[in-house]
């Protein structure tokens, strides 16, 4: 193996420092969440215990975090499914240039770049002025979609940019209808990237704060609940909750990655029937 240039070692060090910068703080609160009962928000550790996790499970100590958590998960799933379906349809629509598609494209860019607080304020104002109650599953749901859909669509654009159209043509030459081509050729090919869209949809919703701030109504989602805690909870309970929700996010990411790997492996195994004769 050829020797590495010196620049490799410089850049590798830089990379490691960046990763440390990226993960250091999260790991720190992970450690500090196991503080002993007498410990504070920073080092030194005064013993090791599950005290603060225990506190978290006592309802009266810190508001309604379990209710908030379940709402966040339900909302995340709603946003995830909607994002996948709407993004795929949108992605298919944009494969051909149609009248007005440019305007729609610039709306997507606007949706991506508009300051989150404006969505929150605008949606909140519409609901309050028309006499509707804001609720996480209506106004909150819609407000979050303005953030997850652009990401979903950008992924779909990237996917279809790399899509080999000859597969479709082959299917059509064999007499497949449009729907059959979509169902049996296009969707299976783009399938693994839909897991990516789903991951974006769920986690961006699960962690979203600014767009839900004025649109969630009287029942908080988890980020709003955590935000409330930061102003009045000054104990490692905050770290325990932070660690727990980070671990949850990591589990979701892990599951998605496992699905992608599985899908790729299946495709590698069953992708070609060349040489297997007539079926």
């Amino acid at each position: 193996m050829e020797t590495r240039p010196r620049s490799f070692y410089v850049l590798a060090t830089f990379f490691c420092l960046y990763v440390l910068f990226l993960y250091g703080p999260t790991i720190t609160i992970g450690i500090l969440s196991f503080q002993g009962p007498g410990g504070g928000l920073t080092f030194p550790m005064r013993g090791v215990s599950l005290h603060w996790y225990d506190q978290l499970f006592k309802q009266q100590a810190v508001g309604d975090i379990w209710g908030a958590w379940s709402r966040s998960i339900r909302l995340g799933l709603m946003v995830m499914i909607t994002t996948v379906v709407v993004s795929v349809m949108g992605g298919l629509a944009f494969r051909k240039r149609f009248r007005g598609s440019t305007i729609l494209f610039y709306l997507i860019i606007t949706s991506l770049t508009i300051p989150s607080i404006l969505i929150s304020l605008g949606v909140g104002l519409i609901f309050s002025q028309s006499g509707m109650d804001v609720h996480w599953s209506t106004s909150g749901f819609g407000a979050q979609l303005t953030w997850t859909l652009p990401f979903g669509l950008l992924i779909m654009f990237a996917v279809f940019n790399r899509f080999d159209k000859s597969y479709e043509e082959a299917a059509r030459d064999q007499g497949a209808t449009n729907w059959q081509t979509l169902r049996h050729v296009v969707l299976p090919i783009i399938g693994p990237s839909l897991i990516g869209v789903a991951l974006f949809g769920f986690t961006l919703s699960y962690d979203e704060f600014a767009r839900t701030l004025l649109t969630a109504g009287s029942y908080n989602t988890l980020p709003l609940e955590i935000f409330g805690m930061t102003t009045n909870v000054t104990s490692p309970v905050l770290y325990a909750l932070g660690t727990l929700t980070t671990v949850f996010s990591l589990a979701i990411i892990g599951i998605c990655l496992a699905f992608v790997l599985l899908a790729q492996r299946r495709r590698a195994r069953a992708g070609s029937d060349a040489g297997k004769g007539m079926v």
């Binding site: 990226l22 993960y23 250091g24 703080p25 999260t26 720190t28 609160i29 500090l32 928000l41 920073t42 080092f43 991951l199 986690t203 699960y206 962690d207 704060f209 980020p223 955590i226 935000f227 930061t230 905050l238 770290y239 932070g242 929700t245 980070t246 996010s249 990591l250 979701i252 990411i253």
Partner: peptide
């Protein structure tokens, strides 16, 4: 880390 909560990542700087 992009797929984890920004608010938690902000709080994480406090002990540092």
């Amino acid at each position: 880390p992009f797929w984890t909560s920004n608010i938690i990542r902000m709080i994480s700087w406090i002990p540092f």
